[in-house]
Amino acid sequence: MGKVRINLINSLDFYEKCLLGKVNENSFRYELMQPMKTMWDYLNVPLKATQPNGYDVVMASEMLGIWTPRKSIQQVEDYLPELIESRIFDEYQEVISKGMDAFEKIGYSIPLEKIDITILLGDEDSQEMKVNKGYSGFGGIPGYILLMAVPNDFNKKRLKSALAHEFNHNVRFTFEPFNHGDVTVEEYIVLEGLAECFAEEMYGKELIGPWIEDFDQEEMEYSIEVIKEGRKTKGFGEVAAYMFGDEVAKRQGYSPVGLSGNAGYTIGYHLIKKYLANSNKSIAEATLTPTEEIVSVSKFFDEPHLQRIGSATTDL
């Protein structure tokens, strides 16, 4: 297969129309989201609900923290210049090309014809945006990436790193597909650890995402033990509590398991660090390695606490 094409959905034109008062919910559906319809179809999200106020792409976008025309146009006025100033619209192609180069170097031809990317304004009122310092992304369907931000001084310089993170998900899922109903805690922490370590290698530790927490030794030890005991737990609802922590679990209706925020992301990051050290593989090679092998070679859940925690905390 030849080089993967990189296609940016033109969200800027949509936001410019917003400022002119020329958009509504249907514009959002059929101008901004229609180009990503295949992705939404995979997620069983219709562009428009069959019943009034039913579940559709507008509601799903709001749940992800994306600004929609149901919210104030003032947000577009306030944040669009900041999003443009971040230069992500100029640099997205460099990010994906650099990421693809890493896999070309190890001889992996990414089995995609193109990757569609949409860069969107987040909703400043969204709790999803607030807990992630105003930015987030979705790369769970190979060939499609969403990046959303309520631009601020913290996240504007991290958008390239976030895009690299989501690109890694795209590649990982071409190798080891994500089964929403059967995903395990172990698979999810490896998935997120790989993506953040990949982004870190591309853009540096100083631009690491806020989902990697700086736990002290006691918190690390405790979190590792909870995740170790629950690492074979299956199903997104059950797994989410391990990934996001008790506060998010309670808010989203999941059963808490006694973990701090972003525990799964943090433990996954350190597990991948341990795997890379033990295997001498590159992060691109690790991305194309089965979860069970990564966990086994990392010995992360097998080593004495002080050994694995000591090496982990020095990485932050």
Rank of each mutant, 00 (worst) to 15 (best):
D182C: 15
Y254V: 04
A195D: 05
D153K: 10
V185E: 00
K228P: 00
I189N: 15
N155S: 01
E225K: 15
F198G: 14
L194C: 02
Y242A: 04
Y188P: 01
D214Y: 09
L207P: 03
D214E: 13
M202E: 08
I212G: 03
C197Q: 12
E201C: 11
G209R: 14
E247H: 07
G181E: 12
Y222D: 01
T174Y: 09
M243Q: 03
T184N: 08
Y188V: 03
E196I: 09
E225M: 11
R158Y: 00
Y188G: 01
H180Q: 15
F198R: 15
V226R: 01
Q217D: 12
G253N: 05
E218Y: 12
A164N: 02
T174N: 10
S255I: 11
V239K: 02
G209C: 10
E229G: 02
V239H: 11
Y222H: 07
Y203V: 08
E219M: 12
G230R: 15
N155V: 03
K205A: 02
A162S: 10
E166G: 05
E225Y: 02
F244S: 14
Q217N: 07
R172F: 00
R251M: 14
K250G: 05
I227W: 00
P256D: 06
P177R: 08
Y242P: 15
V171H: 07
K232Y: 00
K156D: 01
E206M: 06
Y188Q: 12
Y188D: 09
E218I: 09
Y222P: 00
F167S: 15
D182F: 15
F236W: 13
I212M: 05
G230L: 09
E201I: 04
V185Q: 09
I189A: 09
K228N: 03
K156Y: 02
V257W: 03
E225T: 06
T174R: 10
H180S: 12
L194I: 09
T233M: 11
F215K: 11
K234I: 01
R158H: 02
G235A: 04
F154K: 13
G181L: 10
